[in-house]
């Protein structure tokens, strides 16, 4: 820390320039050797890569919405003694919610904006 301010800035600038050129040379060398994998097209999405995982995701999305809906419908019916009114209504709504979950998962990007 004995250096004056200007000298310190100079050294700092040199180091930064050296680091930047090192990064550039490293990137060029990696490119020549073919070490960098191409950036995956699926970046930013959460779609599973293989078919089994995708199928499992879709199944779980469908079933979980239905399970929540049935639980709510059954609970409301027990509370209000209206069986099977709410159960019937919520099974339909739950099925729709499940389909919407799946649509958000696999649909076009515009629909996937909200998940």
């Amino acid at each position: 820390m004995g250096k004056d301010q200007a000298g310190g800035d100079q050294a700092e600038g040199d180091r930064e320039r050296g680091a930047a050129s090192f990064e550039a040379r490293l990137a060029a060398a990696r490119g020549r050797q073919g070490l960098d994998r191409p950036v995956a097209a699926s970046r930013g999405t959460d779609l599973p890569a293989n078919a089994l995982a995708l199928g499992l995701r879709v199944g779980v999305e469908l079933a979980s919405a239905l399970a929540v809906a049935v639980a709510i419908g059954y609970g409301l019916d027990r509370w209000l003694h209206t069986r099977p009114l709410f159960l019937a209504v919520f099974v339909l709504l739950g099925g729709a919610a499940g389909v919407m979950n799946v649509w958000r998962l696999v649909g076009p990007r515009a629909a996937r904006g909200r998940r």
Binding site: L56, R57, V60, E61, A63, S64, A65, A67, V68, A69, I72, F90, L93, G94, A96, A97, G98, M100, N101
Partner: peptide
Amino acid sequence: IEILSYLSRPVSLSIR
């Protein structure tokens, strides 16, 4: 439907 979809999140998250 949106509320059900929201509530189904923890269920699908945990079941998966």
